[in-house]
Each structure stands twice: as structure tokens, then as C-alpha cells.
């Protein structure tokens, strides 16, 4: 098996936007795809609307749970005004996934922007759709499944 070196994803936004939920879904999908995965976050006061970020790292074997500054391969940002705060995490040539990439008019609820942006990220990851769907189902309560599966599909559309 070819060795898969560690890929780094940082998800950033504001408290209440679903940063941590998006990170959990991402980690769960990658885990189901057979990667070693680590997800790390700082909560505590994040609930009160401050900046929040979560790191997800995956590969054959991941050591540190934290993405080193300037080494994120992907930076997913849920709040436009947080792009500048989070940008130092991104490596040169890394990919920024931001709200403008999603057809927001199609989103029935702003609340599922986090999952829509995961859909956009999914275009670039080697994880099959059914695994994403299973991860969404495993992470969110049942009443939110349909809306979030839809949001994921909207984000994934090229």
C-alpha cells in the first residue's frame, strides 16, 4: 500500500456556526474511509460567539492532533470576516474553501452552510459519497439528516 502522508484541514468560523459539528462529520467520514484521523479543538468560551477553529488531520499514521501553522492543505472558513484571522494556517498553494463557493441561494437554511462547505471540500478528498452520508447520519440528530444531506449535495455540485 502506498503510504499516505498526513493531510491537514482547518475549519474556522464563529461560535454557533457549526465549526465543531463540521469537523466531527469530516473526521467520521475519513475514519470510515480507513484513515488514521485526529481532530482537535478548543472549546470553552467558543459558545459565546468568539472565533472557533477545529483541526482535522488524516493519513496512515497521524501524531500531533494540531495542524502546524502554515501547513493546512485545506482551510474551510464559515464566516467571511474570519478568513483573515485563519489564513496564516494555510500553506502556500493550499486551498481556501469559503462561503462564496456555495450557491447560498439554494441553501434552505444558513445553519447548514457548514455541511454545504464540507460538500465543497469533498470534491477534493478521496472519500466516497456513501461514507459522507453515513458520517452525517452518525453525527447529527435524525430530524436534521434530510436538510444536511441536501446541503452537502449543493456544496458538492461543481
Amino acid at each position: 500500500m502506498p503510504s499516505r502522508s498526513t493531510t491537514n484541514v482547518v475549519i474556522a468560523g464563529l461560535g454557533g456556526q457549526g465549526v465543531l459539528t463540521a469537523a466531527s462529520i469530516l473526521a467520521e467520514a475519513l475514519f470510515r474511509a480507513g484513515f488514521d484521523v485526529k481532530q482537535s479543538e478548543i472549546h470553552g468560551m467558543s459558545q459565546r460567539g468568539g472565533s472557533v477553529s477545529s483541526h482535522v488531520r488524516f493519513g496512515d499514521k497521524v501524531f500531533s492532533p494540531m495542524v502546524p501553522t502554515g501547513q493546512a492543505d485545506f482551510l474551510v472558513v464559515l464566516a467571511v470576516d474570519q478568513v483573515d484571522v485563519a489564513r496564516p494556517m494555510l500553506r502556500a498553494g493550499g486551498m481556501l474553501v469559503e462561503p462564496s463557493l456555495v450557491e447560498s441561494k439554494q441553501l434552505t437554511s444558513k445553519r447548514s452552510l457548514n455541511v454545504a462547505l464540507l460538500g465543497t471540500l469533498a470534491r477534493h478528498l478521496d472519500v466516497a459519497d456513501p461514507l459522507w452520508h453515513a458520517a452525517i447520519a452518525a453525527t447529527l440528530p435524525e430530524r436534521l439528516h434530510a436538510a444536511n444531506l441536501r446541503a452537502f449535495a449543493i456544496g458538492k455540485m461543481p
Binding site: Q47, R48, G49, D81, Q82, D84, A86
Partner: peptide, 12 residues
Amino acid sequence: PLPTAGKPPELC
């Protein structure tokens, strides 16, 4: 290097 300052938390 200093970390970039994010938005501080506030009372809801």
C-alpha cells in the same frame, strides 16, 4: 510569531 487575534467571546 504572535498568533493572529480572533474575535473575543462576548455575552450573548
